[in-house]
């Protein structure tokens, strides 16, 4: 069977774009796990709440075909900032009100609390926008949304589509990843985070305010989830109380796949899952006729199981036995 290079590249583009969005959410899981060794199962719903907040903010403005482009850019940036701040504040508040009180409780307690919070936030989501999928207000006109940049801007005669939204995803995600890397690697607070991750008690003895440092990790994770939420809402053209479940699950998987606690690992895991997801949805069937989109979760979790079997610490992580 002939290899269809056009389709392969197309699904690669879709995979990388989706993977970046997953990576942004995965960083929230990995940041928190790296410091307090807690899987924050409410993180997917924090992401969802960011999207609903952005949806509400944008809905306050009347946007039509005559709205000038600079107003649309201003509204978009405002909604992006609002979503980031809202999700950041929500994640911080969850830590402050729930997890902090359970810091010294058995591990199961915060884990169950996280699952409970996830359901509570879903319920709030239903109350907020209802249980149906909603289309966000049209910030990007349909004719611009469907432009193929490779044809229109670069004059290439190709069926591979690169849309403005793909560039927007990359344009927002990469600076955020670079900023996070700088923040954790180069700032005093970042050093405090790494110290707390290595040994909480020693960090406290060295004068680091551990609770504040943990709160900052939650805040950062929430900020990234908020950014991902706003971009995802426009990338998928949908807002729903359920959107946190699938992205949250894939992001958690990405974090584990890359090596939970490892920031680069979360990005690698996110990209890998994004590519597997899109290839399974579209490309594999050309070679395996019975394959279809319904097998995508099987493919993703199959990859996860394989990696876990041969490299239990994840692709870039190190397997460390429990402390004794």
């Amino acid at each position: 069977m002939e290899f269809n290079a056009n389709l392969f590249v197309q699904f690669l583009i879709n995979g990388v774009t989706n993977g970046m969005l997953i990576a942004l959410v995965a960083l929230g899981y990995t940041l928190v796990y790296g410091i307090v060794e807690l899987i924050n199962f409410a993180h997917g719903e924090v992401f969802m709440m960011g999207a609903l907040f952005a949806f509400t903010i944008i809905g306050m403005f009347t946007i039509g075909p005559d709205t000038p482009w600079f107003a649309i850019v201003a509204i978009s940036l405002l909604a992006l900032a609002a979503a980031m701040l809202f999700s950041g504040a929500l994640n911080w508040a969850i830590d402050r009100v729930v997890y902090r009180r359970l810091r010294n409780a058995p591990r199961l307690a915060p884990l169950i609390a996280a699952i409970g919070l996830s359901f509570i936030l879903q319920g709030i989501g239903i109350y907020w926008i209802g249980s149906n999928n909603l289309r966000p207000p049209n910030l990007i006109a349909n004719n611009i949304r469907s432009i193929n940049l490779l044809n229109e801007w670069f004059g290439l005669d190709t069926r591979i589509r690169l849309r403005p939204l793909d560039l927007i995803v990359v344009g927002i995600t990469i600076p955020l990843l670079v900023w996070l890397s700088w923040f954790v690697g180069r700032t005093k607070t970042g050093k405090a985070m790494r110290a707390t991750a290595q040994d909480r008690e020693a960090a406290a003895l060295m004068g680091i305010d551990v609770n504040r440092t943990i709160a900052i990790a939650f805040l950062l994770g929430g900020l990234l989830a908020g950014a991902a939420a706003m971009v995802t809402m426009y990338y998928t053209n949908t807002a729903s109380f359920r959107m946190g479940f699938r992205y949250g699950l894939f992001a958690f998987t990405a974090a584990v796949l890359g090596g939970i606690g490892n920031l680069t690992g979360a990005v690698v895991g996110g990209l890998l899952i994004g590519i597997v997801w899109q290839m399974s949805d579209g490309f594999v069937q050309a070679y395996i006729p019975w394959w279809g989109a319904q097998w995508t979760p099987v493919a993703i979790f199959g990859v996860l199981v394989l990696v876990m079997v041969f490299k239990p610490g994840g692709l870039l992580g190190e397997f460390t036995p429990d402390k004794v």
């Binding site: 269809n4 990338y235 949805d281």
Partner: peptide, 19 residues
């Protein structure tokens, strides 16, 4: 083929079909 009702995006599925 069946599609995943809980998926957030069907771009790749549609790309394949459109092709």
């Amino acid at each position: 083929e069946g599609y995943d009702p809980k998926a957030t995006d069907y771009q790749s599925l549609m790309t394949k079909i459109a092709d």
